[in-house]
Structure formats: structure tokens, C-alpha cells
Nucleic acid binder design. Structure first.
Length: 424
RNA sequence: GGAGAGAUGGCCGAGCGGCUGAAGGCGCUCGCUUGCUAAGCGAGUUUACUGGCAAAACCGGUAACGAGGGUUCAAACCCCUCUCUCUCCGCCA
């Protein structure tokens, strides 16, 4: 959530941001929040005064002569009833305020473009597109090489799942190891993370764990859900902690499975591995001091780029427009890799600076040099989303006969395999 | 899954119904002192919200002893539920 002080001091600016983000000003209602806050604080003052009175009277009771005790107890008892009623009013007001507060998105960086999904600004293009005659897409290539099986996955689990076989199964491990290695060299601490997390952590990161619009698989009768990304578990990792200044920045590179219901996503470009319910992902995550987060955002992007560059996969970097940003993000870069099968770029990574929006909910703080406690900033980025990376690797490295050459940087992880042969 | 024990401040560790936001120790910070990288003495040392104020400092209030409920005028302390940790047994990778 956003610092309430900022909202109070700049209500008009926040309203503009809500419009720019394409959010509903009736659902994200700044004026209602400010009113609810006033109301809540006024009630708080009253309740606290009553509590103070109760505490004082109560504390005096043991020193009273026996004859006066009965009357004093009765008096405090009456006060307590009044207090109980006022407290439940107060709780309702706090609830209302928090609900309104949670609906307010993060600020926007100055250079976030206006507009929606189609208004992202391309800030960089890298690499020459491969010259392929009649390129095949990864679904066809997967069939020809017998390395991806969607049909049987549909039988066993359902649509949107897949088996990776043979070289593709090895490629998954290779992509993970390669990305992990790059991140570790850049100072990130490797982590293998839980694939389930408590709903409170999910919502702290900004995921909605239950309800009709949820993207998340939840576990019945338990308050835990399957994670959609290791961002959730890495973000929750140090929740409710005050970090030491020397600990910062914390850099994690986490491997997890990612589970997404993709509710309402049908009909979009989703053939094959592009939009699936489960995939493996290597996630970069940084917890840092507030003043460092913009620089970290650039560093994470650079690391993501270096992975694609080494794999020699053409890509472009886009700066996501306000209307397409998640509520926690101040700014977001996506990298879209070239996917010859669709003759277009497709999103393979994403990195966001979420500033203190998530740390405020997850309560991740640090003690600064003056001993003051303040919220950290959090950033996340994709090192490798295996399923989508597999698309661009297979499609960019396909040969005219349908065989696939293993990219050179992945060879050390491929047990001597250099080419995926055609089998069907 | 069965039986038991436990969860207190940065750490260790008391307290088991009423000046206990929390003894004592360690650590840390500041000051003083000391002829020897150390020691001694004194003071300080949680956080959130909130009021005084527009803000900082400061002063006050409220809340927090794993979490949530309950009993009571009053709960770290009694009761219930949950979570987590440890020990033993069983089971299983």
C-alpha cells in the first residue's frame, strides 16, 4: 500500500494516477479514503481517552478502602460497556479505511508512458532477426522432435499443461542453471523456494488469493495457495522483520514452479507454451534502501538482457504504460524476445520497481544510520521463465529440417547433446 | 498420526492476576574515568498508531510478552482455538 501521508498531501496527484492507470476512481476512491481516515482517527481519540480513564480507575481500585471498592468496580464496569461499543465502531471504521487504502495504487515514475497495453514505449532493440524460410512454431517443432507433449498432459491434468521430454526436459534444467549462474555471478543468493504460500503473503505482494478474478490456485480448507511466482515467497521471506543496514541490499535469485489459473485469458495469443498453468521460473528479487531502487531496476534489466544476449536471442525492451502496470509497480520493463513461430516479439521477462508498496504490507523494514526504522524497497524481475524462453530458443535455433541446434551457452548443461534431431 | 514440553525486548533469561513496557545479564550507544589493544563508573537503549503542531524536537495517550478469541474492574500471568519450535513413539520419502 501507498504511504498514507503521501496520499493526504497530494490527493489530486493520486487521483490523476488512478485515472492514468485506468483504474476505476469509484473503486479507488481517494476522497472516500481521506474521509474514512478522518473518521477513524476521531473515533480512535475517543476510544483511547475512554481506555485511559478505565485504566486509571482500574489501577486505583486495589488501593481503595474495602468499603469503596464495590462502587468503583461498578463504575468501571459501566465504563467498560461503553468502551466495548465504541471499540467495535472503531474496528469497523478501521476496516473500511484499510479496504479503501488497499485500493490505492503505487505512484508512477515520471517516465512511465501514458496509455494502456498498446502504448508501451520501445526503449531498445537488440539483435538481428534470424533469416528463416517458413519458420515453424515450437508446437510443431515439439511434435517433430518429440520433445513436448500437450495431448497426454491434457489427458493426465488438463488443458494448459505439458510434458517436456528428452532434450526439452534437459533444456529446462539448462536454462535454469544458466540463468542461476548468471545471477549468482551478479551477487544474487540462490534460493529454492516453497511452491505454496500463505494467503496473507500473496496479498501482501499484490496477488488476490481468492475470489472470482483470482489468478491463483488455492488449497481447499487451508489459507495457503500455489504461488504464481517466486516473487511471492521471496518477498515474504523477510516479512515482519527489521533488517540491519549492513544486510542491504538483499539479492535473491529464486527457483520455483509457478501456477496460474489464467482465468479469462483464453482467446489471447496462447498457442503452446506461451500461456500455461504451470511453469518453472528463475526470479530475481532485490530488497534495498529506498534511494537505491531506481538503480537496481536498471541493473536487474541489464542482467535480464545479458541472459538473452548471451543466448543470442533478438529482443526488445519496452517501458510499460501506466494503464498496463500492476498496482504495486512504480515502473515496469518487459523484455520481449523474438519468436519466429508467430513472427513477433513475445514477453519473456518483466521487471518492476515496487518501491515500498509491498514492504508496507509485508512489513519489511530496515534501521537507517540514524537508527530510524523505515520501509525497504522491493524489486523483482524474471531471469528465466522457462516455458516462454523455450519458445524463443526452439524457434530461433530451428534448422530448415525441423531439428534444433542447442545454443552455445547451454551446451555445458546438455550432457553432450548439441542438436535436437527430428523424430517424427 | 500418538504422547509430552515450550514460545517474553537485538540476544540470553526472570516473572505465573494489580506502578512490569516488562527484573537480571549480554550486546549496543553516549558521557566520565583510567598510563598501557582492556577494565571501571554513570546514563541511555522496542515498535506502531495517535493528540498537542504545519513540520522537527519534545511532551502526552493508546496498543503490543507467538496469533486470535474469552474470563475479570484489571491478564505476560487464568480459560479456549490456532500457528510454530523442541523431545519421544509410530509412519513415510
Amino acid at each position: 500500500m501507498l504511504d498514507l501521508k503521501i496520499i493526504k498531501e497530494n490527493p489530486e496527484k493520486i487521483k490523476e494516477i488512478i485515472i492514468k492507470r485506468g483504474m476505476n476512481p469509484k473503486t479507488s476512491d481517494v476522497d472516500a479514503l481521506l474521509a474514512a481516515d478522518e473518521e477513524h482517527r476521531a473515533a480512535l481519540v475517543k476510544v483511547e481517552a475512554l481506555r485511559s480513564e478505565r485504566n486509571n480507575l482500574s489501577a486505583a481500585i486495589p488501593k481503595l478502602p474495602a468499603a469503596e471498592k464495590g462502587a468503583a468496580v461498578a463504575k468501571v464496569k459501566a465504563l467498560k460497556e461503553e468502551l466495548t461499543a465504541k471499540e467495535s465502531e472503531l474496528n469497523a471504521l478501521a476496516e473500511k479505511k484499510n479496504e479503501l487504502w488497499r485500493a490505492i495504487p503505487n505512484l508512477l515514475a515520471d517516465d512511465v508512458p501514458d496509455g494502456g497495453e498498446d502504448d508501451a514505449i520501445e526503449i531498445k532493440k537488440w539483435g538481428d532477426l534470424p533469416k528463416l524460410e517458413n519458420p515453424r512454431d515450437h508446437v510443431v517443432l515439439g511434435q517433430m522432435t518429440d520433445t513436448i507433449d500437450f495431448e497426454r498432459a491434457a489427458k493426465v491434468t488438463g488443458a494448459g499443461f505439458y510434458y517436456l521430454k528428452r532434450e526439452a526436459a534437459l533444456l529446462e534444467q539448462a536454462l535454469i542453471s544458466f540463468a542461476m549462474g548468471k545471477a549468482i555471478k551478479a551477487g544474487f543468493c540462490p534460493m529454492s523456494t516453497p511452491d505454496l504460500a500463505r494467503d496473507t503473503i500473496l496479498s501482501g505482494i499484490g496477488f488476490n488469493p481468492r475470489g472470482p478474478e483470482t489468478q491463483v490456485y488455492s488449497i481447499q480448507d487451508m489459507d495457503i495457495s500455489l504461488v504464481g511466482t517466486a516473487e511471492i515467497t521471496l518477498g515474504g521471506y523477510r516479512s515482519d522483520e527489521v533488517l540491519k543496514l549492513e544486510e542491504l541490499p538483499l539479492q535473491f535469485v529464486g527457483l520455483s514452479h509457478c501456477f496460474r489459473t489464467e482465468a479469462g485469458a483464453y482467446g489471447r495469443t496462447s498457442r503452446g507454451l506461451y500461456r500455461v498453468h504451470q511453469f518453472s521460473k528463475v526470479e530475481l528479487f532485490v530488497i534495498c534502501r529506498p534511494e537505491e531502487s531506481p538503480a537496481w531496476h536498471e541493473k536487474i534489466l541489464a542482467l535480464e538482457e545479458s541472459i538473452l544476449q548471451e543466448l543470442k536471442i533478438p529482443y526488445r525492451v519496452i517501458n510499460i504504460a501506466a494503464g498496463d502496470l500492476g498496482a504495486p509497480a512504480l515502473k515496469k520493463y518487459d523484455i520481449e524476445a523474438w519468436m519466429p513461430g508467430r513472427n513477433a516479439y513475445g514477453e519473456v521477462t518483466s521487471c518492476s520497481n515496487c518501491t515500498d508498496y509491498q514492504t508496507r504490507r509485508l512489513n519489511v523494514r530496515f534501521k537507517n544510520s540514524e537508527g530510524k526504522v523505515n520501509f525497504c524497497h522491493m524489486l523483482n524481475g524474471t531471469a528465466t521463465a522457462v516455458s516462454r524462453m523455450l519458445i524463443s530458443v526452439m524457434e530461433n535455433y530451428q534448422n530448415s529440417d525441423g531439428s534444433i541446434t542447442i545454443p552455445e551457452p547451454l551446451l555445458p548443461y546438455m550432457h553432450g547433446i548439441t542438436t535436437i534431431p527430428v523424430r517424427n
